[in-house]
Amino acid sequence: MDATVKRLVKEVKKDGDQDAFRELVDLYKDKVYQIAYRMVGNAYEAQDMAQEAFLRAYANIESYDEKRKFSTWLFRITTNLCIDRLRKKKPDYSLDAEIPGAEGLDGYSQLSSPDKLPDEQVVTMEMQEWVQEGILKLPPKYRTAIVLRYIEDLSIQEISDILELPENTVKTHVHRGREALRKHLGNT
């Protein structure tokens, strides 16, 4: 995989080889799209962000340092684009903020009790939506850390390379995100 990626990148760098670039898109589209989807929270914007990430990667391929992992560079472009987009939107993330009139409302009080539901799948779907909602309520820096750590399954070191942040800062962001999600999911 690494050798293939290196060769493809070289071809794109050399003369903008579009067939080689197409192969790179195919290799990474799902991961890039998934990051974007979890960051911005809807399919329409996720596609927009993911496409833009690839177009920028193509346009700026000269600035990619081949000593680093290509995915690190590509994911950095993706997360930066998504964070910019989130900053321009009205922030709706404030997981710790109290919702007026919602005292005592937690994950379980919003979900129907599982044993009352005939179809276990429904519970799973609702649970997934609840998790996604929790992720979308996280401030962007915690959200990025959680998405890369637990949805993309990347190591702290890789995340630190992508975000160009010290490992300890990444860990703190993961901890805070995890803690906020724990409260959101209301498993008291």
Binding site: V25, Y33, Y37, Q128, V131, Y150, I151, R182
Partner: peptide
């Protein structure tokens, strides 16, 4: 449990037309 639930969210895939529209 929180971590397991986040890890357990189903993965999403890029739309089929994704690569073509970039090209």
């Amino acid at each position: 449990r929180t971590v397991t639930m986040v890890q357990g969210t189903s993965h999403v895939w890029a739309p089929e037309t994704f690569t073509d529209s970039i090209m």
